[in-house]
Amino acid sequence: MTTISTSTLETHTGYWLRYVSNHVSHAFAQQVEAQGVTVAEWVLLREMLGAGATNPSLLAEKLGMTRGAISKLVERLSRKKLVVRAVSEGDRRYQTIELTEAGARLVPILAQLADENDRQFFGHLSLEDRNKLVCMLQEIVRRHGWKNVPVE
């Protein structure tokens, strides 16, 4: 009988990426959820900051999300009074969304949480090492042509 050599989990780069990602993402999710939003909602809120009134379809394209996903996020954020919708009088199908004052105040708080989360997990690395890590990850994203923004 032939013995087949089977690699261990720990020999795979993807294992370590997932291990780190799970911990980093979970910690951040808990922090933003304590502020009353999900990570996906935070991503949309952050993208809207400074954009003014914008079309949900443009946001969907920019974030690599479906219009349906954006619509659900907008609905949840609208119920939380963090965004408002305006429907065009000339074409009821066309709408824009915009941050409310409460939404605009929340985004910097959430961004600070993201910054703190990065410091907690990556602050021990030198600036040069952090930059190298980000560049390597960005190269993987470019090489595969990935467009959708991670929200989970």
Results as ranks from 00 to 15, higher is better:
Ala114Arg: 14
Leu82Met: 04
Ala27Cys: 05
Arg46Asn: 12
Gln35Tyr: 01
Cys135Val: 09
Arg142Ser: 13
Val20Lys: 03
Tyr15Glu: 05
Gly90Ala: 09
His124Asp: 09
Glu98Lys: 03
Asn22Phe: 01
Gln35Asp: 02
Ser78Val: 13
Arg85Asn: 03
Trp146His: 13
Val37Ala: 02
His124Pro: 04
Leu133Cys: 10
Gly64Leu: 03
Arg18His: 13
Glu75Gln: 14
Arg85Gly: 02
Leu106Val: 05
Leu82Lys: 01
Asp115His: 09
Lys72Glu: 06
Leu99Val: 12
Val151Pro: 06
Asn55Gln: 09
Ser88Tyr: 09
Arg142Tyr: 11
Leu127Glu: 15
Lys72Asn: 10
Arg46Val: 02
Ala27Arg: 06
Lys81Met: 08
Ala27Val: 04
Ser88Trp: 08
Arg105Asn: 03
Asp118Val: 08
Ser21Trp: 08
Glu33Asn: 14
Val141Ala: 08
Thr6Gln: 14
Glu61Ser: 02
Thr8Met: 08
Gln35Phe: 03
Glu10Gln: 14
Thr13Lys: 02
Asp91Met: 00
Gln120Phe: 15
Arg143Glu: 07
Val141Leu: 12
Ala111His: 05
Gln95Phe: 11
Glu139Pro: 07
His23Asp: 07
Trp16Asn: 00
Thr54Leu: 05
Leu59Glu: 06
Thr38Met: 09
Val151Tyr: 13
Leu44Ile: 06
Val83Ser: 10
Thr11Val: 12
Val134Asp: 06
Ser25Lys: 05
